[in-house]
Design a protein around this nucleic acid. Structure first.
Lengths: 129, 129
DNA sequence: GTTAATGCAAAAGCTTTGCACGCGG
DNA sequence: CCGCGTGCAAAGCTTTTGCATTAAC
């Protein structure tokens, strides 16, 4: 039998994502995870992200024209969506959900989840102080 | 002055996308465009897709864990969204839109567009005949 | 005729994989 | 100890870029 091992690197990577308020790209995860586990390599980041995604611990957030990012599924299970600022390219979590989203599917199609992404300008970019 | 030239290749690529009922990846676009313009290369496909996207003629459709696809903006301007089948990985256009989507944004954030993606099982995969 | 666009091939990213070593259990 | 996970480097992909040639205008 094969048992799964919980290593320091994996813990550092998982903590990195859990601690972040917003989705992070693999490169950002690497940089932050190295603060607590300096020898960690990019390959391990990718392997761990894939594993955590498979376990449902984290979720992949992929947005048109943006690099792949990952966020804690704790945030994801508090059902929420994303806002992408066209000016600064940052991605923000937004709470709540629209009415009747899943009923958009055609007859015979069963929906098990959905994503909503809003595009626009965030408050900071809209009000340059 | 630099004038833009409308070439046969560009026309073939644009037609390919306009004629397709669903979003196509660059590789699929290449294969289909070659049916009418056999010498066209992948670099030209990418260059033309980028140009058409910039003009607003086509729209990029990017979905978690899927290759990048493009579709005619004619379809896109008939406001619609996408359904991704988890079994066969195909992407379907779905008409209509949910209520109050844009009001999800926090105060101070202005929304200019949005995307909705439903995940589930399509009718064919749900009813294996 | 000019010169933008093409097509090839090389390059640049990003992500995955092979392998010897080290650490977790 | 046994063997999974790591770290490095090499390989695989997708997408972009450089350059000589072709073809729009």
């Amino acid at each position: 039998m094969s048992a799964e091992r919980r290593t320091k690197q994996q813990a550092a990577i998982e903590r990195t994502i859990t601690a972040s308020k917003r989705p992070l790209s693999p490169g950002e995860v690497l940089a932050r995870a190295r603060r607590t586990s300096p020898t960690v390599g990019l390959a391990t980041v990718y392997r761990t992200l894939k594993r955590l995604e498979g376990e449902g611990t984290i979720a992949r957030v992929e947005i048109s024209g943006q690099p792949t990012r990952f966020e804690s599924h704790k945030a994801a299970s508090t059902h929420h969506h994303h806002f992408v600022c066209r000016v600064c390219d940052r991605v923000f979590d937004i709470p709540g959900c629209a009415q009747g989203v899943e009923s958009l599917a055609p007859d015979g199609f069963s929906v098990d989840s959905h994503e909503i992404v809003l595009f626009g300008i965030c408050d900071q970019c809209d009000n340059p102080s």
